[in-house]
Structure formats: C-alpha cells, structure tokens
Design a protein around this nucleic acid. Structure first.
Length: 857
DNA sequence: TATCCCTGCGCG
DNA sequence: AAAGCGCGCAGGGATA
C-alpha cells in the first residue's frame, strides 16, 4: 500500500503539509478507524486511550483517514472524500476489517457513503460486508467538551458490537395469527389491552392508500394486557405480541383480510392508548379501511421534540437508544418476501417502538414543558391531520384545463423569441457537449446550453459563479434571477428580459400545472402529507409521501400546499366545491408581534396596542416617503422584508440586495447603514434581545420558545466564526418562528374541536405557516367564521394549559370566497359577528355564495 | 436507470 | 470580515 505523493486529484494537495499519507496498523486487524485526516501524534495518543477505555486493544486497530492530505486550511467536502477513496479502498482491500469506526462526517462518508454525522452518529450500518458505526470527530469533542459523554457512548456501542456483548434487549415470544381460532383469541386479548404499540405493512403505490390496489399486508402489535391473578384476584400487566397476516400471498386471510379487520375493529378501537412511530401514516391507512385507532403517543414526534437535529427513523433510534442490532428486510416489495420474515419484521417494529416509547416518555416527564407540547399540541394535531390529508383540497379542474395551454403557449412564444438570437444550428458556432461529440440541445433552463448562450454566444459578463468544483476549478456562471437583474441594470438586453420572464413561466408549468394535473383524485381533490417533525423550528412542512420507496416520482401522491404561488392564475385554481366556501385565515404579522412579545420591545408593543401598522412605519422610515405615498405594493415589498430582515440579524449589504431585488431601489452603503441604525433606534429593545439570545446560546448551546420548545445549536461551538454567527442568528429566529407556528397549530386543533362540538361540517385544509385554510359549507359560514377568528386571536389553552400570557394583540384576517386566489378579505371584522351584515357581504363579494335558505333547500 | 449533488425558485 | 430564518421540488449533469 503506497500513497501517491504527487497526487493532484483534488485541490487539497495544494496547501497540504503532506500529501497522501496512508494509514498505519496491523494488516490483519479486525478493526479499522477512519478519521478525517491523518492524526497528529497527540490526537492519535488520545484516541488510543479512549479505545482502551472502552475495552479495545489499540495495537490491534488499523488507523487511517478519509482524506490522506494533511491540510487543515481548506474546507473539505464529500467530493474530496470521493477523490481520495481509491487509496482507502486499497487499505480496505488489504486489511479486510470486520468492524469500522467512522469519525466525523468525512469518516462517515468514506465508510458508509452517507452525509450528516449529527444525524447518523451512533447507528450501525452494514456496508459492503463491513459493520460500520459512525460517531462525531474527536476534534469536535475537544472543542466542545459537552459532547464527550455521547461520543464515549458511541465508542462503547462500537466496542460492544465488536466484542459481541449482549445489549440486554430480549425479544419476547409473539403470536403468529394464522387460524380463525387464534384470530378469535386475539380479539379477546385486544379487548383486555389498555395500550398497544401498533404498526402496519402496506403495499406501495403512487397514490398511497387511495390506489385501487392498495392493501394492508400485515398488522402487528405489542400489547399491554390486564391480567387478573386467579388466586389473589389482583391485576397486573402482561406483554402480548402478535402479527396478523392480511393480504400477503401466504396469508390464510389473503382474500378475507378486509372482513378480518372489520371483525377486530371494535376491539382495536376500544384500546385507549395507541403508540406508533409516525402513526399518522398508519392511522390514515387504517382509517381508509375502516379502523380508527386511538393514537395517543408518537415516538417519532417525541424524538423530534427531544432533539430536532437527529434522524427520526425507527431503526436509527432503536439502534442508538436500545442498542439493538440492525433488523429489517427490503421493504420495496413485501409481497414477494416470505411471510415469516415480513411478520417478524413487523412485530419487531412494534416491540422496539414500545421500548422506545417507555424510554421517551420518561425523558419527556423529566422535561415537563416538552411533555406538554407532546400531549396537548402534537398528538391532537397529528390526529387532526389524518382526515385533513385524506380529504385534500378541491382543485378547479375547469380552470386547470383552460389555463395550462395558455401557460404553455406563453412559454413557447418566449422561447421562439429567444431562438431568434441563436446561430444556424448547422454552423460551427453551435455548442457541443463535454466530450465534443454531439451538438447540445436547445435548453433555456439552467443548463450548459443556456450558460453557453448567455455568457459565450451573447457575451454577457459573468457576475457570479456557483460552487467551486471539487477539483478546484471555478463554478458555473450563475443564471439566478438576482444576478440577471443586476446584469440587466448594467447591460440592458432583450435576451435578459426574455430569460427572466421565461423562468417564472417554466416554473409555473413544471412545478405547478404539470404536478397538479396528475395529482387530483376522482373528486378533483389534491392531497398532501404534512410533516409535524419536518423542520427544526417546529413549523410543519408539506409535500409528497416519503420518496425513497418508490422509483419514478412523477405521480407520487402529494403536492406541497405551502408553496402554491400567490399569483391568482395558480392559487385561484384551488378552492371549494359548489355550495362550499374557501376560507383563508391569516395571522397578521404574527412573527413580528411575537418578536415584540419575546423581546419585550416596548415601542413595538405600544404600536401594536394602538393598532398601528408596523410594516407601514418601517416602509416610511426606509423610503423616506410620506404615508400617503407608501402604496400597498411598497409596504409589502419594502416594509415587510426589511422588518423581518433586520429583526433576524440581516446586515446592510443584504439590505441593499433585498431592496434592489424586490423593489429596484438603489441604496448606497452609508444609506443602508443609516437605515439599519434607524431601525434599531426605532426599536431599541431588539438589539438587547439579540444580545440576550447570543448569550443564551453560547452558555447552553440551545434556546427555548415561550412554550418551551427547544432548538439545539451545537454549531455555536464551531471553530469558524461564520458558523458561530449563523447559530446566533438561528438562536434569535427559532423561538419566534417556533412559537408562531405552535400558536397556529394549537388554533387549528381547537377550531377542529369546536367545529365537532358545534356539528359544523366545515374542516381545516391545512396550515401555511401563519395561515389556516378551511373549507366551510356556505350555510355554516355565519357560525364558523366567528369561531375561527375568536380562536386564532385568543387560543384560550395557550393561557390555560401552557400559561403563556401575551402582551400584544393578535389579529387574524379572514378571506372568504369560492377560490383561494380570489377570495375577498372581510375588511370590517364586525361583519363576521353580525349574520345579517355577513350575508350582505357574502352576497356582494362571493361569486357563488348560496344564501342559507337556498342551501338548506 | 437510479442516485447524488447543485442550481434555482416557489412559499411563509 | 460579514452575517435574515425556515422549508420542498424540478431540472441538469455526473456517476455507477
């Protein structure tokens, strides 16, 4: 094994103290440790001591690194790991280790091909016949001693795995329900079960449970059953595990699986407590086939609340928290796997979920504020989202059919105009592909052709480039909108206009028209999946069901309902079916209000209490215009971004950019600096709050929202100042963004509850961060609208259950109409509370509104 | 053909 | 020295 001292495969060799240093250790070692770069003697000694501490003999370990150059000056990425892999592979080939300890993100990438060490640390991977366990880099531990216990735990896991020490998890016997007699017995046991950890395996389809061929393959559970002692008469718990085969080809119930479910339905629905990992998915499927479980604890949501930065899957958490070995089978096509294996896999899922539940519950009990979020917010929200996702949002197919061709025509016409600037396709000027063999196809997206067109053929100057390539060569010229806007200002050209215009039409067509067209169901409704654990701040995210199981994502069920363009051309395709209304309830400036509350910014609080318009105040201050000249447009394009920007730590450079990009306004450096100063003079408690958050995150490595939601920010301990500063800004933003979204989510659950109590058929369609959308039957608007407005402006449980008393007024604006995009805002809130005036307003502003007397008829 | 990363852009 | 935050998806291009 010889390195190549003349290697120049990546840029790292240039500033390297040593090039291509190969690893060291016995060639017949079972264990290989892969670090980031060759260790210094000091670090090597420390690492060897740590390995001894966990019971390994460092003399029997081969030590090597993902990157063979000693270069701590340049930042390294996975691309550099890749460039270096050939040397590591030589070592793997010769040493043939059975167990690999991967250190840091580079080690993880080299050993397991994954990226994201904070996510994957402490998990076991089987890769190319090696058992790999990654943990954080010892360097990171040196910088941040708080990481040491976790790091040592990972090392222990690695050592125990290698030494074959038992982890202490004993899997109980479980029942395979393959006869009618066993099925009957199962039913009687379920009737005495007070807690079940449940999980189903399903067939995989683009339309999910809505596919005509959708089947539940198996249902498994780990049950806590109340037993009565025959002698003493006392009660005690017994664990009962089972797997019930349903639609599997080897299943005795393959043809009768739906009636089997029906048979068990009362017993299953009678179990008061249901635990599941991402149970919203299982509940959606089970509901689809008629069984409504009581879902009371979701391990995935608990994991997320306890640490928002780690992987949320069952397997990584069971491996890391329970120390169990990897289990599972290829889930792509469970119908062709042996039933015995599917059943075992399914049962193990529920048993490990149950063990995790016990552990997580205990941790939450020790952090009561998180427990409160879990039980009073997350679980109700998770349950409410089941019908929300199943129902979907109504799409006006007539509008879609009518509008799509127009958009296509628009795009075509722009491209025709662009093509006039191209050379003769036969001429030598036409660009060739990288290998110089074929002519490039016309493509005005951000492609090689388009870059050639703008920067070579049209000879426009390159203002900005993308990421540097791994080999150190410069990145591709940027074609982004803001770059083209600057280009246009300095070198006006028709081609830039056309490119700018084209890109938004292209986006409309590919991301929205094409997507929606293949996504609606028989009732003209499109569906989404909301992730409650999809963001680090606590916001929901919206989109498709998990992508990784299905190849070809064109028809995957689910659209992102949080990025529907505001353009009425597109947003106006969503709405409510005839006889129903689309209601959008927006929190007005919610994050700004909450920032004022959290920062205790006295001027801002006073302004809000007076009902003043802060975006307007800011827009006036920034543009220097008198109030009468600040149009709605200026307020929106200047006031809003500047408020949110400076609020969250934007600098004056970015301010200049923002103002130019959104408004075309050109500010000098001194002007921009003056505005920033003026902003903080206007709201002097904001910088004090910023300092407080910086102090908090430096001290504790985490910050909390008023509800107690935690954001962990380990990056604050980074040696890089820029990374630290980023963590500081996140410490400022997170409590605000997190609290705002928790308020919206809480309101959603309360409104749903009130609708149920009032027998209102209307329902929530989903959250768009600070807005809640509803579909309300026309004749119920007068009952529903006051509930929505009252609840959002004062979600009582916020005070009663969470003890948070706001010092700022909260305002919700309601828009009502047939379609989302052209619903009208109810300007005068009093209208909402006066049925006669509301009817009058609706008759005037709602194109298809049915008066309740008509609707009833 | 599937997968990864990057660019670019939609939303709050 | 300089620094808004938070997402998901489509398309391009390289790679295996």
């Amino acid at each position: 094994m010889r390195g190549n001292p003349n290697c120049s495969d990546c840029k790292l060799h240039r500033n390297a103290a040593a090039v291509c240093v190969m690893g060291d250790g016995p060639r017949d070692a079972d264990i290989m440790v892969i670090g980031k770069m060759p260790n210094s003697d000091k670090n090597q000694t420390a690492l060897e001591q740590q390995l001894e501490e966990v019971g390994l003999d460092p003399k029997r370990v081969y030590f090597t690194s993902a990157l063979k150059c000693v270069n701590w000056e340049d930042s390294a990425s996975n691309a550099h790991v890749k460039a270096c892999r050939q040397y590591l592979e030589q070592e793997l080939e010769e040493v043939k280790p059975t167990h690999i300890l991967a250190l840091g993100n580079e080690g993880l990438n080299a050993a397991a091909g994954k990226s994201g060490i904070t996510k994957y640390r402490g998990q076991l991977f089987e890769k190319d016949g090696y058992t790999v366990i990654p943990t954080i880099s010892p360097m990171a531990v040196n910088r941040n001693p708080g990481q040491r216990p976790g790091y040592m735990a990972d090392l222990r896991l690695f050592a125990n795995t290698y030494l074959g020490k038992a982890t202490g998890v004993k899997v109980p016997k479980w029942a395979f329900i393959d006869t009618k007699a066993k099925l009957k017995k199962l039913k009687t046991i379920l009737e005495r079960t007070h807690l079940i950890s449940f999980d189903i395996e399903t067939t995989v389809h683009n339309l999910g449970e809505f596919d005509p061929n959708a089947k539940i393959i198996t249902l498994a559970g780990t049950c806590l059953v109340t037993e009565v002692d025959a002698q003493t008469g006392g009660e005690r718990d017994r664990i009962f595990g089972f797997c019930l085969p349903l639609y599997h080809p080897e299943s005795p119930f393959q043809t009768t699986w739906k009636s089997v479910l029906k048979f068990l339905k009362p017993a299953l629905e009678g179990i008061p407590k249901g635990v599941a990992q991402n149970g919203k998915f299982d509940c959606r499927w089970l509901t689809h086939f008629g069984v409504n479980m009581n879902h009371t604890f979701d391990t995935m949501l608990a994991i997320h609340l306890l640490n928002e930065n780690i992987a949320k899957g069952l397997k990584p958490n069971a491996q890391a928290r329970l120390g169990v070995p990897p289990w599972g089978i290829d889930t792509k096509d469970l119908l062709s796997e042996p039933l015995a294996e599917v059943a075992e896999y399914n049962f193990l899922d529920t048993y490990y979920t149950y063990l995790l539940y016990k552990q997580l519950k205990q941790e939450l009990i020790e952090q009561p504020r998180l427990l409160r979020i879990m039980t009073k917010l997350y679980m109700p929200a998770s349950r409410d989202l089941v019908p929300t996702e199943r129902r979907g949002v109504w799409l006006d197919i007539d509008r879609l059919r009518e509008r799509k061709p127009k958009v296509e025509e628009k795009l075509r016409s722009i491209e025709d105009q662009l093509k006039e600037y191209l050379p003769d396709p036969e001429s030598d000027d036409w660009p060739m592909d990288t290998k110089g063999r074929k002519k490039l196809e016309v493509n005005f997206n951000a492609s090689r052709f388009a870059r050639w067109f703008l920067f070579d053929w049209m000879q426009l100057p390159v203002l900005e480039r993308g990421k540097e390539k791994p080999d150190g060569s410069p990145g591709d010229p940027s074609m982004a909108e803001d770059v083209l806007l600057h280009l246009q200002a300095d070198h006006p050209h028709k081609v830039i206009d056309l490119m700018l215009e084209r890109v938004s039409w292209q986006k409309n067509l590919s991301s929205f028209f094409n997507a929606y067209e293949v996504m609606y169901d028989d009732e003209h409704r499109v569906h989404t999946t909301f992730k409650l654990a999809g963001t680090v701040t606590g916001r929901l995210s919206s989109g498709k069901d998990t992508t990784d199981k299905i190849s070809g994502k064109a028809n995957l069920r689910g659209v992102n309902l949080q990025q529907v363009p505001r353009d009425p051309l597109i947003r106006g395709m969503f709405g409510a079916p005839y006889g129903w209304s689309f209601v959008e309830a927006d929190y007005s400036q919610i994050e700004l209000r909450i920032a004022a509350f959290i920062a205790n910014e006295r001027h801002m609080i006073a302004l809000y209490q007076q009902g003043a318009d802060i975006h307007m105040t800011t827009a006036m201050a920034v543009t220097g215009l008198p109030k009468a000249q600040v149009t709605k447009e200026i307020r929106k394009k200047v006031g809003k971004p500047v408020n949110f920007g400076f609020l969250y730590g934007m600098g004056w450079r970015k301010f200049i950019e923002t103002a130019f990009n959104n408004y075309g306004a050109v500010f000098s450096e001194s002007e921009a600096q003056a505005y920033r100063r003026a902003y903080f003079e206007l709201f002097p408690d904001l910088p004090r709050w910023h300092d407080r958050q910086r102090r908090l995150v430096r001290t504790y490595g985490r910050v909390q929202s008023p509800l107690g939601r935690v954001r962990h920010l380990p990056d604050i301990h980074s040696p890089e100042k820029g990374v630290q500063a980023e963590a500081e800004r996140q410490a400022i933003n997170s409590p605000v963004q997190g609290f705002a979204s928790d308020m919206a989510l809480l309101s959603m659950t309360i409104i749903n509850q009130k609708f149920r109590e009032a027998g209102i058929a209307g329902h929530c369609l989903g959250l768009v961060h600070d807005a809640i959308n509803f579909e309300i039957r026309d004749d119920e608007l007068e009952r529903a609208l006051p509930i929505i407005k009252d609840t959002m402006e004062d979600p009582v449980p916020l005070r009663k259950k969470f003890g948070t008393i706001l010092t700022i007024p909260i305002v919700a604006d309601l828009k009502v109409g047939r379609h989302w995009g052209d619903a009208h805002e109810v300007e005068d809130p009093e209208v909402i509370y006066d049925p006669d005036r509301l009817n009058e307003w609706l008759a005037k502003n709602h194109p298809t509104y049915l008066h309740k007397s008509l609707a009833a008829a």
